[in-house]
């Protein structure tokens, strides 16, 4: 038996928003520890890794490990039927071929349940090695989204260049060239408005704009985003999810042909 209760179902709506542009379907692996998801996008350029710890939920029970293959368009249809303040309960029997989503209004006067068929997915799990990154940049997630959106007008690729002084995002194309430089913030009132850089070595890498823009669909999950970079390895774009855990996106860099 699997059962997870979430008083604010808006978190799951935001998670779905954050993955459905990159993934058509995904396997939600449920265990005693929580819910995990790992999947590559269709072109195998990026990888999404989601971790929701069981202790973040208001109630959580998972007697046996359960892998739920889910069509994300179907799940989106169901989650659209939930009010943001509804209490969500997800339930599945062991070895079930369906999962139930139950939404209760705060005053408990409206209760809806939706049964969704699970699908069999041939999932490929990849091992992500522990990496000491040369540069770790933390910045407001809204700022990162704005930069990705602005630069995507100028080219297909964004060059991210990080030094001790700051981080520079650049794009170039038919229109011309664009450069956005962010310095570390000296002092800010709110921690979430800060730009901080931990640098061991300067790094410059090139990435596809399209994927960065897809990652920013997670902006609603966290006020801050963390970018981790090292030469010749994938970029990690991480959004913390409150008391639950995180969503991480890995993006393979582009190389000179």
């Amino acid at each position: 038996m699997f059962e997870a209760r979430l008083v604010q179902c808006s978190m799951l709506k935001k998670v779905l928003e954050a993955i459905k542009e990159l993934l058509n379907e995904a396997t939600f692996d449920c265990s005693d520890a929580g819910i995990q998801l790992q999947a590559m996008d269709n072109s195998h350029v990026s990888l999404v890794s989601l971790n929701l710890r069981s202790d973040g939920f208001d109630k959580y029970r998972c007697d046996r490990n359960l892998s739920m293959g889910i069509n994300l368009a179907s799940m989106t249809k169901i989650m659209k039927c939930a009010g943001n303040d509804d209490v969500l309960t997800i339930k599945a029997q062991d070895n079930a071929d369906n999962v139930m989503f139950m939404f209760e209004s705060q005053n408990q006067e409206k209760v809806s349940d939706y049964d969704m068929k699970l699908i069999n997915l041939d999932q490929e799990h990849l091992g992500i090695p522990e990496t000491d990154y040369s540069c770790i940049i933390k910045m407001p997630s809204g700022e990162f989204a704005r930069i990705c959106r602005d630069l995507s007008q100028f080219g297909e690729s964004v060059v991210i260049s990080c030094t001790k002084e700051g981080v520079k995002f650049s794009a170039a194309g038919d229109v011309g060239a664009a450069n956005i430089k962010l310095a570390q913030t000296a002092n800010v009132d709110k921690e979430e408005e800060a730009v901080t850089i931990e640098m061991q070595e300067p790094v410059t890498l090139t990435f596809a704009c399209r994927y960065l823009n897809s990652f920013t669909k997670a902006t609603a999950l966290s006020p801050q985003v963390q970018l981790s970079m090292s030469a010749d390895v994938p970029l990690v774009v991480e959004y913390k999810i409150g008391d639950f855990g995180h969503i991480r996106y890995y993006l393979a860099p582009k190389i000179e042909e």
């Binding site: 350029v45 990026s46 490929e124 990849l126 042909e257």
Partner: peptide
């Protein structure tokens, strides 16, 4: 011209 690499080049299959 930049070439897009696959994420599979970096992470091993479990």
């Amino acid at each position: 011209k930049n070439k897009q690499q696959s994420i599979r080049n970096f992470f091993k299959k479990k």
